[in-house]
Amino acid sequence: MSTHNELHELPDDDGTVLLIRETMARTTADLPPLPDLVGPARAQGRRRRARVRFAIGGGALAVAALGMAAAVALPADDGDPQVGGVINVAAPPSSSTAPPPPVHIEPTPGGSSMADLPPAERAKQEDFQNRAVPVLQSLLPETVGTVQRTDAGVRLYQGTKNGKSFFIIFSVRPSGSDPTTRPCLEAKGYVCKKTTLPGGIEATATTSPINNGNVTEAELFFHYGKSNVSLAIEPHDASNTSAPVTNDQLLELARASSFLDLVKAADKDPVEKEQKTVVGG
């Protein structure tokens, strides 16, 4: 008979069963232990994930390092881009954006515009306007809208918001030996406020009713160096909308370094003709 049948026909008593169990225990005791498959597999999985994370992190750091090197690397004073044995790769120059064209304003009969100026003077005035637009845009409140230069004159700009246009008059005009001052008047609907700018300069901001008192215009005024400086925002007449700026906002603008830099440049190299005072005129 087969071994299977022999085992099947063994007497089923307690002594025989115990003998069989002891024999099997002695047989398996001499065999080597089974390997732990779960532990190594878990450890291998952890190591694999760690390698993946390290590879991703290292790649990101490498890309970031290359980007920073391209952005900040500058050539030495002698024009040699090699510093400390490392070749620095300079980032390509950004493309310059041409300033937008001016708002065209048709001259009144017998009037003139910047198109009538000599080419050199026109270029000088347009350059000043292009420098002034971003400064005014950043310092005037959002209620004034998008600021643009015009071709009517170096002093005239325009703010547009929700279909309404507000003329902005920014003037830095040589005053000669007689600087103009602006006292605060007491009148109905007239609001005046003063402040002191850097250097002890007194600035005045006013809100004045015009057009039979239906709307108001706002103006900032002060004297700087040899020039009278003014910034006025006019109302939108068609909709009877007052100038959308307060005296406090104008005085805050006057204290801004970017605005004072514009004023300083125009005072040093004027873009307007000297102001003439006509007695009795």
Rank of each mutant, 00 (worst) to 15 (best):
V63Y: 01
A62N: 05
A76M: 13
V271H: 03
A70N: 11
P174M: 07
G58E: 05
S95Q: 15
N228Q: 14
L260C: 08
D36R: 13
A41P: 00
K188N: 13
K268V: 02
Q44N: 11
I210P: 00
I56T: 10
T207P: 00
E106G: 00
A123Q: 15
I105R: 10
K188E: 15
I169T: 14
A62R: 07
R51H: 12
P119C: 08
D36P: 08
Q275G: 08
G145T: 07
H223P: 00
P35N: 04
G200L: 04
Q125F: 05
P92V: 14
K124F: 07
V83C: 04
Q82V: 15
G59F: 11
Y190V: 14
V144S: 06
T23E: 12
P134A: 06
L37I: 11
D36T: 11
A152N: 00
N214H: 10
T246F: 02
D36M: 08
I201C: 02
P75H: 10
H223R: 11
K273S: 13
A90I: 13
G176D: 03
A91S: 14
P118N: 11
A25C: 02
L231M: 06
H223E: 09
D116V: 00
H8N: 13
A73I: 03
T216P: 01
I169Y: 13
N211A: 14
V271N: 05
M114K: 03
I233D: 03
A43T: 14
K164Y: 04
D77V: 11
M1T: 09
V133I: 12
D80M: 09
K264T: 12
G111D: 03
D261N: 09
V17F: 09
R255W: 03
A64H: 05
E252F: 01
T23G: 09
T143C: 00
E9P: 00
M114C: 02
S258V: 00
V144P: 02
K164D: 12
S112L: 06
G176K: 02
S112Y: 02
T23L: 15
S257N: 08
G225E: 12
R42C: 03
N240M: 07
G110L: 07
V103E: 06
S230G: 11
S258W: 00
A50S: 09
L156R: 07
P102K: 06
L117P: 01
P198C: 02
T277M: 10
S165D: 05
I56A: 10
P93Y: 08
A205W: 05
A50I: 07
E217F: 12
Q158S: 09
R131Q: 15
A55G: 15
V147K: 04
I105F: 08
N247I: 07
G225D: 14
R53L: 14
S112E: 07
G59W: 07
D151T: 04
F222R: 04
F222Y: 15
